[in-house]
């Protein structure tokens, strides 16, 4: 199971990186979001999957699942959610102000002229 998850995480990285390397602003934003989800999946997988019972008080079992990675990815997902919504607004604002939907139109600053 861990192998499949690792491959899936790698696949998400590939997709994310490919999207980030394209020129369209929206694709870049979606790419960054996919990339962080790949990282979250990796974080979850790294602690081992389904190694025991859910870590609940009162539940008798020999081994329990490590709850820490879940706490970590919850935090990471919330952060990535906030950042993604921020970039979406930033991308929209950039498009409104500069009229650029592609990165090559964003190149250079006014001081270069």
């Amino acid at each position: 199971m861990e192998i499949i998850m690792s491959i899936l995480a790698g696949f998400l990285f590939t997709v994310g990186l490919y999207l980030i390397l394209t020129k369209n602003l929206i694709r870049i934003i979606i790419g960054s979001s996919v990339l962080s989800h790949g990282a979250h999946l990796l974080l979850l997988t790294m602690a081992g999957l389904k190694t025991g019972a859910p870590p609940l008080l009162g539940l008798e079992a020999d081994t329990y699942v490590d709850p820490l990675p879940q706490a970590l990815i919850l935090t990471a997902i919330v952060i990535s959610f906030g950042v993604t919504s921020f970039i979406l607004v930033l991308g929209y604002r950039t498009y409104k102000v500069t009229g650029a939907a592609e990165t090559d139109q964003l190149r250079g600053t006014d001081t270069d002229e």
Binding site: G16, I20, S32, L35, S36, G38, A39, H40, L42, L43, T45, M46, P69, L72, A76, I79, S80, V83
Partner: peptide
């Protein structure tokens, strides 16, 4: 992107 790498490093 660098934050994503940070999470990977932590993992």
């Amino acid at each position: 992107v660098s934050s994503a790498f940070f999470v990977i490093g932590v993992a």
